[in-house]
Nucleic acid binder design. Structure first.
Lengths: 250, 250
DNA sequence: TTCAAACGTTGCGCTGCCGCAAACAACTGA
DNA sequence: TCAGTTGTTTGCGGCAGCGCAACGTTTGAA
């Protein structure tokens, strides 16, 4: 994790992770992020002063499907997965959200309740604001609305792609594609390849690709024997991305 | 089709279906549709005067994936399906759009090109405006933006549901669900049940449910023997919706 | 009336993937 | 250090649904 710009020392967060962090948030946190990049220092200051900062442990939910949408969020650091849970208890991952994006923006799509559950896929640092400020943000801050709708557009596109993949591709190709997308979004270069920068289990990958953890495990084992990937518990490193691309395009 | 309010006689359209229809469009066409319902007569008049009206035959595309998004559309009558085509030529239906909704609204999600192809699933009547007017509509017309984003929110929800269905359900349940959704959106009551109000082939249904036309055909045959549905060429009537609901929830 | 194209049905064999089961490995907390 | 929890691997059997193929039916154009 690299969210150390949040406050001078981490000690506050370590002893009380769920408590708002009080030392004044630094403007540099937001100034380079698209929804805020057109704003001046004074505006960003105002936005930050209204924000609540909070750290989420891996596996903790930021908000739950169906709950009234009381706040909207900006993911500063970490990684969130958006899941839906079926009546029978199965989880399906609809989206992955990398740091730097807004989430829980129900108001932007005319909803009063969150349409899905958001779970921290890694330790995450998040700002949030009461949903009541949404209209104000849209009205007052130049580029905020535009960038928000671009984000929504991208998510629509992502979901679309997943539908097409699930409809036309074999499991092997879907898993390969999922890995490629993950290393693109959150890859960290390591000695022997590119590692996915947050803990991810076979189960997680199976929920992302609509298959079972067993099948994912078998595939990863096979790929490991061929030298395409290396994996430990909750960690996956892709050694030969190109080979995966080939695999994914059969 | 019931789009006869468009002009006094249909003869114009019959001989030149792709030519704009000139007799002044009636205000009642738009005044009850959500994006325009808050507007007064004068505003609707202005909107209509800038619109081009056109009829599309079944199977004709309104716009194509990747093309520059030059116009946005309002489907007045008929039915449109939004498809994506894979590199290997397979079609996957992402969404169905019923009459009364906007489509091709790339600008609303920050895109310069259409993200998918829209094909008339039945004979359809469509208004369209140059995309250049989009920002003006958003700025000038009360409720237009809000309703548009609700539409987008609903489509996100629909796509989400499809992902979950494809990830967790068997083919039989997916097809049952698809039929139920279709009769809900476009069902027309007939003597022996509810008929889907536009021509739909086994192939279409298979593209909607990520399976093959063979499997759909087998399922429909089986259901017909059990008295759940009746079907002719391109026409499907659901006789026992409740039984389908039960089937879809196994 | 004829013919071709589009649409629909059905049988059969095969296989990709799931479901189950069992055992192992790694991490966690006491 | 040990016990419990969580994550991973692997073998085996079964079957849903796909692919292929062949044939029947409807439609519309000539």
């Amino acid at each position: 994790m690299h969210g150390t710009a949040i406050c001078g020392t981490n000690s506050d967060m370590d002893v009380a992770p769920t408590r708002p962090v009080f030392p004044r948030l630094d403007e540099s946190l937001l100034s380079h992020l698209p929804p805020f990049s057109k704003l001046d220092k004074r505006q960003i200051r105002a936005i930050l002063d209204q924000a609540v900062s909070r750290r989420y442990e891996t596996g903790v939910s930021l908000f739950d499907e169906g709950a009234p949408a009381e706040r909207f969020y900006m993911l500063l650091d970490g990684y969130v997965r958006v899941v839906r849970i079926t009546p029978t208890g199965e989880q399906v991952t609809a989206l992955h959200i990398p740091a730097g994006q807004l989430l829980g923006i129900a108001k932007a799509i005319g909803k009063e309740a969150y349409p899905a559950t958001a779970i921290a896929a890694a330790e995450s640092i998040v700002l949030s604001w009461p949903m009541g400020l949404w209209d104000q943000f849209v009205a007052d801050y130049d580029g905020f609305a535009t960038e928000t709708y671009k984000t929504i557009g991208n998510r629509l596109g992502e979901m679309n792609t997943r539908i097409v993949e699930m409809a036309t591709q074999q499991v092997e190709q879907r898993v390969a594609n999922a890995l490629l997308r993950l290393i693109n979004q959150t890859g960290r270069k390591v000695s022997n390849g590119i590692e996915i920068d947050f803990p991810i289990t076979r189960q997680d990958l199976s929920e992302l690709t609509a298959t079972t953890l067993h099948t994912v495990s078998r595939l990863l084992s096979a790929w490991e024997k061929q030298g395409l990937v290396q994996s430990k518990r909750k960690r996956i490193t892709v050694c030969d991305p190109h080979a995966l691309v080939v695999l994914s395009q059969v």
